[in-house]
Design a protein around this nucleic acid. Structure first.
Length: 596
RNA sequence: GGGGGCGUGGUGUAGCGGUUUAACAUGCGGCCCUGUCAAGGCCGAGAUCGCGGGUUCAAAUCCCGUCGCUCCCGCCA
């Protein structure tokens, strides 16, 4: 071994020991006659003291040392003089007096500093990811991620789950997201697909009698990126047999509550047990099915008053089948006209036609663009319904399209919650959203579409509606939500061939196509498939939230950039001619690029 | 596929028509310094202002195009 101790473990009780450390030069301070090196490894920092006058070798090495050199240091652990103790360091009571220093490797000047937090263009960080990962922030995130995955494995093992790997090369299922394809050399013109999730495989494992399955599963989706999306990402994929919805919810709630407390003990879980909201309730109260429940400012429906009031914007929206709803931004009555105009501009970008407001100043003075259109009763009715007090700013969106009202107010609510400091990173507000509609009408394709996926089981009490009113059927489906993010989605599955076929029929999937894509699972249903269900929490997203990072790239060791490129290796890159030949492929560039 | 933002020494920023031989911090190189821990002091090197074109007497600065990065919409069963 190159070292007897890590750089994070020496304490006062080790004083007098002769030890060897190895690590990187985090910082050095040359005082002429005395020289300090903060030596870093993954476990911490230790101050090394060097007296160059003690030997020629030491003097020589001290003149050469630079940041991020890799050193091995032999020496004695000394107590620091009382006035030199550093209470900010774990090892701050001691220092190592160097007797011998070996330079294990040198380091060129760095493209960005590792020993302090500074904003660096992300493309440079990603290009030099091996250096970026040395930084404290990244080390913390990677360690947190490890702890979370270890907790998941230990917990599920304890509960009798089996971790089972499923193939990365599988079959394309051109439902949902775009697949990544892998060309077959042996079968010209045929392709494997990388799994968007191991959905069918984990259901087949239930037919196989595994009963409790989990996997830290890599999933692949060829869609454009976002801050919380990557072309490949990791899910805690789970599936269980002989379970009902609440068996799964209870288990996951217990896991995520205990795990959050274990890995981030300083954070507070706001609700125990977690609230369960129906999809409809979540929409009505928060305008979205992944609400931030750390704060109130809930949506209020004032349509009943607005439909007959004197303000034509409101009246017309409702007459056209829409709705008028508002939020009460407590304490924002000091917003100027200009600031409200900015909010209006913002909701326009989200699809709303405008933003009506009522301001009630601290002195009780009421002002609004639409006061003059309303009689006193309607005015008072709205104020009462909105729970308006002095200092409040009430904001309303009216639209003939209810989803525009929901969406714009939901976003406005989160934006104002952020401004008002109501989104405390030390608070974790978990909740469950249940009873989603099973189908939604696709206007583009003039047919019903599965909102989750076509394997979701209709709720027992809604089974009859499959024949009469598919839009009213609720699925036995559930989402785990944390602080404005959908963390997991799952459902009880269909396990009978006849019911599965009925659902495929309803979403307009021809029998022969269903057979080609899903024959393995359809066949399996006829061989004693047990009732089963599952869920798949997003690991990257969960780590991101706990680490308080703005995007999941910060919690992935080697992520791709916004354009799905690996900035370090340059992937994707062109294939060699012989590779293409082996795979029976020819590259046809898009029209615009052909001329180059 | 569409829209917004950004691009200035290694890094982060300022400058946004002439007052700039492009500034500041940090990093880098050298010298000084025996107790620092974001050490300090002095000196120095380092940028044809992403690239191409245009407007102008004059462009880092204005316009057009292009490339790169980034955020958002579409997309993500």
């Amino acid at each position: 071994m190159y070292k007897t101790h890590s750089c994070g473990e020496l304490r006062k009780s080790d004083v007098g020991k002769t030890i060897t450390l190895a690590g990187w030069v985090h910082r050095y301070r040359d005082h002429g006659g005395v020289y300090f090196v903060d030596l870093r490894d993954r476990f911490g920092l230790t101050q090394v003291v060097i007296n160059p006058e003690e030997s020629k070798d030491l003097a020589q090495i001290v003149s050469e040392i630079r940041n991020e050199f890799v050193l091995q240091i032999e020496g004695q652990v000394n107590a620091r003089p009382p006035e030199a103790v550093n209470p900010n360091m774990d090892t701050g009571e001691i220092e190592v007096h160097a007797a011998k220093i070996t330079v294990l490797n040198t380091c060129k000047p760095l493209p960005f500093s590792i020993n302090k937090e500074e904003n660096t263009d992300e493309s440079i960080r990603l290009k030099y990811r091996f250096l970026d990962l040395r930084r404290e922030r990244m080390q913390k995130n990677i360690i947190l991620r490890h702890k979370i995955i270890k907790y998941m494995r230990d917990y599920l093992d304890e509960k009798g789950f089996l971790e089972i790997e499923t193939p990365i090369m599988f079959k394309t299922t051109p439902e949902g997201a775009r697949d990544y394809l892998v060309p077959s050399r042996i079968y010209p013109g045929q392709f494997y697909a990388l799994p968007q999730s191991p959905q069918q495989l984990k259901q087949l494992l239930q037919v196989a009698g595994m009963e409790k399955y989990f996997q830290i599963a890599r999933c692949f989706r060829d869609e454009d990126q976002r801050g919380d999306r990557q072309p490949e990402f990791t899910q805690l994929d789970m599936e269980m047999s002989f379970v009902e919805r609440d068996d799964i919810l209870d288990l996951l709630e217990d896991l995520f509550t205990k795990m959050s407390k274990a890995v981030t003990p300083h954070k507070r879980i706001l609700y125990e047990p977690w609230p369960k909201l129906t999809y409809q309730e979540a929409m009505d109260r928060f305008g979205k099915d992944a609400p931030d429940m750390r704060f109130g400012m809930e949506l209020v429906d004032i349509s009943d008053i607005a439909k007959n009031c004197g303000f034509s914007v409101f009246v017309n929206a409702i007459a056209d089948g829409g709705s008028v709803r508002g939020i009460n931004a407590k304490g924002l009555a000091n917003y100027t006209r200009r600031q409200i105009d900015e909010l209006t501009e913002q909701v326009r970008l989200w699809g709303a036609k405008g933003l009506a407001y009522i301001k009630i100043s601290e002195t009780g003075e009421e002002s609004s663009t639409f006061r003059k259109f309303l009689n006193d009763d309607d005015w008072a009715g709205i104020l009462k319904k909105m729970d308006a007090e002095k200092g409040d700013l009430l904001l309303f969106v009216a639209d003939s399209n209810l989803s525009v009202v929901y969406d714009s107010l939901a976003r406005l609510r989160v934006m104002l919650g952020e401004r008002l400091g109501l989104r405390d990173n030390d608070v974790l507000a978990f909740c469950w959203i249940v009873d989603f509609p099973l189908f939604e009408w696709s206007e583009d394709e003039k047919r019903w579409d599965a909102t989750h996926h076509p394997f979701t089981r209709p709720k027992k009490e809604d089974m009859a509606l499959l024949e009469t009113d598919p839009g009213k059927v609720r699925g036995d489906q559930y989402d785990m939500v944390l602080n404005n993010y959908e963390l997991a989605s799952g459902s009880i599955r269909i396990h009978e061939r006849a019911l599965q076929e009925k659902v495929f029929d309803l979403i307009g999937l021809p029998r022969e196509v269903a057979r080609e894509r899903f024959h393995q699972i359809m066949d399996a249903f006829e061989y004693g498939a047990p009732p089963h269900g599952g869920i798949a929490p997003g690991v990257d997203r969960y780590v991101m939230i706990l680490a308080e990072e703005p995007n999941i790239r910060e919690v992935i060791a080697f992520p791709k950039n916004n354009a799905a490129r690996d900035m370090m290796s340059g992937a994707p890159s062109e294939a060699m001619e012989n590779q293409l030949r082996d795979l029976h492929l020819r590259v046809v560039m898009p029209e615009a690029k052909k001329e180059e």
